[in-house]
Computed example of a mutant assay.
Amino acid sequence: MAASRTDPLTFEVVELIGTVVARYHAEYEQAAAKHALTGTQARVLALLAVEPTPMRRIAQRLKCEPSNITGIVDRLEARGLVERRPDPNDRRVKIAAATEEGRGTARRLRDSLDFAREPLAQLSEEERRVLRDLLQRMLGVEGR
């Protein structure tokens, strides 16, 4: 039976998800500030530390305007954390990539985020797998 919006259990789950998200964002902002970054700059850097990405795709992933990403990448580039490269497949497209220093900063930032890690450590591997699978299903995302 599908959950209704007014179902008390659904309301409780929504409230708990909201609390988790709010606590995660607060900690993320604090961790970013320790590296003299805004939360958005830290998210862009984290994304670029995984793989070089076209500017337009960064904007799509973060659900913001491409002009905002340009300013963020400008500031990260001025600090030596990011560099711009031409796309080898289309030289009109600029790809942003984390520098070695940027990847190190992103790693230190990620390693300092305890809020998400500590509660998850209390769950067994199977429980974490079930939670991951349920969250992916909620978001309509197939396993990555």
Rank of each mutant, 00 (worst) to 15 (best):
E118I: 12
E142K: 15
R108C: 05
A3R: 12
L113D: 02
G71H: 12
P8H: 14
V13N: 02
A32H: 00
L139I: 03
R56D: 09
Q30W: 00
T53D: 03
R75A: 13
M1E: 13
E126D: 13
A31W: 04
A33Y: 07
A96Y: 06
R128A: 11
V44H: 10
M55P: 00
R91E: 09
Q30G: 01
T99F: 05
E126M: 07
V13S: 04
V82T: 08
D90L: 06
R103D: 08
R91L: 09
R103K: 14
D111Y: 03
G102H: 06
P52W: 08
R129V: 13
L47H: 05
E100G: 05
G104D: 11
V44P: 06
L48V: 07
E127N: 10
L48F: 03
A36G: 08
L113N: 02
T19H: 11
Q41N: 00
L139A: 15
E12Q: 14
G143I: 02
L120A: 15
T38S: 15
L120H: 05
N89E: 11
N89K: 13
R75E: 09
V14H: 13
M138G: 14
R75I: 01
A22V: 10
R79F: 00
E27I: 01
I95Y: 11
L48D: 07
D114H: 09
V44S: 07
A31E: 06
R137I: 00
G143L: 04
Q136V: 02
M1V: 12
L123P: 06
T38W: 03
R92W: 04
T38I: 02
R56K: 14
P8V: 14
E77R: 15
R128K: 12
A97Y: 06
T10F: 12
T40A: 01
L16M: 10
G71F: 04
D87L: 03
Q122E: 14
L134R: 15
A96C: 10
A32C: 00
A36W: 02
K63N: 00
R107M: 04
A31N: 06
P52A: 14
S124E: 08
G102M: 02
S4T: 14
L120E: 10
E118K: 11
L113H: 05
P54D: 03
V14P: 01
D133K: 15
A32N: 01
L62W: 01
T99I: 07
E101C: 13
V130E: 09
V82C: 07
L113P: 05
E118L: 13
G143A: 11
V13C: 07
V20M: 11
R107S: 08
R107E: 14
V82D: 02
T99E: 01
R103E: 15
E77W: 04
M138F: 14
R85C: 01
E29A: 13
V20T: 12
T53K: 10
D74N: 13
A121C: 04
M55H: 10
E126F: 06
R23Y: 09
A97T: 09
A96R: 09
R5G: 12
E27S: 02
T105Y: 01
E65R: 15
D114Q: 08
D114G: 10
A96E: 06
L37D: 12
Y24V: 08
S67T: 15
L131D: 02
N68Y: 14
G71M: 08
D114P: 00
